[in-house]
């Protein structure tokens, strides 16, 4: 009986270690972007989201400061994004959001550039100044058609 008690305890310890490993993986590593529900959200409207999707990075000065929560089509003509920003990052009211590409063919991300104002954006407010993705095909076709006219 004594031996069985010891076995039981060892098995208990083994199960706890295993569960701890699973929990660590789930909480620390698996958590989307390490943010989860923390951070505050901002809204931004773009004429062309250009392939930015849920989970894409938000960067400021080349540093990841958050992640895209959702991308939706509004009023059948433009894209509305929900941006989740780390709590310690403050963004000015006249900040400027643009869709950019990492390198030439890399992932799309949102770049935020701080403005000059002192006022900072509250959670849930909108970044008014946005710049859509630069569409190379559009540029080319515009050039061709303007050339014909």
């Amino acid at each position: 009986m004594q031996a069985y008690r010891r076995i039981e305890m060892t098995v208990g310890a083994f199960v706890i270690v295993g569960l701890l490993a699973i929990t660590w993986l789930a909480v620390k590593v698996g958590q989307v972007g390490g943010l989860g529900e923390s951070g505050y959200s901002l809204v931004a409207n773009f004429d062309d989201a250009g392939g930015v999707r849920k989970g894409s990075d938000i960067m400021m000065a080349g540093v990841v400061i958050g992640r895209i929560d959702s991308v939706k089509l509004t009023d059948n003509d433009h894209a509305t994004m929900l941006l989740r920003i780390n709590n310690d990052v403050k963004i000015t009211e006249d900040a400027f959001a643009s869709v950019r590409t990492k390198g030439i063919i890399g992932d799309r991300y949102i770049r935020i550039t701080q403005g000059m104002e002192e006022e900072i954006l509250e959670a849930g407010s909108e970044i008014e100044e946005t710049e859509s993705a630069i569409n190379i095909e559009d540029l080319i076709s515009k050039y061709i058609f303007s050339g014909k006219e």
Binding site: I22, L25, A26, G30, Q31, V32, G33, G34, V64
Partner: peptide, 17 residues
């Protein structure tokens, strides 16, 4: 750690489990 946390999603975890 940052890249590890950033690149691995819950989806990858589920796959492994």
């Amino acid at each position: 750690m940052a890249e590890l946390v950033a690149k691995i999603s819950m989806h990858d975890m589920y796959g492994g489990w």
